[in-house]
């Protein structure tokens, strides 16, 4: 069993990451997530980076706006509102805290 894990452990880990990764808009209110990848256009990516939203950052989805069109995020002390269409392009891994 040990040798099996040693051989295929990395594949299983990557498989699990893909299985559990979701986009930011699927994270529920009050839950935390770590950003894996941002697939938006370059200018939006730059702007998000200035607001602390970059790969490896821990994000909390605090609230949603009316009709759930936007998400209120908290990242390292910065609060920002983000349109759902952009959030759908951000891959995250949910954190169970």
């Amino acid at each position: 069993m040990g040798s099996f894990l040693l051989l295929y452990g990395w594949y299983i880990l990557i498989f699990c990451v893909i299985l559990y990764s979701m986009n930011l808009s699927q994270v529920k209110n009050g839950e935390y997530a770590t950003i894996i990848q941002i697939n938006t256009e370059e200018s939006v990516k730059q702007r998000l980076k200035m607001l602390n939203v970059c790969p490896n950052a821990k994000v909390q989805v605090v609230k949603r706006s009316l009709f759930k069109s936007s998400l209120l995020l908290e990242v390292n002390g910065v609060r920002l509102g983000l349109r759902r269409e952009i959030a759908e392009q951000i891959k995250v891994l949910r954190l169970y805290i």
Partner: peptide, 16 residues
């Protein structure tokens, strides 16, 4: 208000 009303304005082709 801008954040919350973004839902309304997104329907109008604008943002908050």
């Amino acid at each position: 208000l801008a954040f919350t009303a973004d839902g309304v304005f997104s329907k109008l082709g604008l943002n908050g």
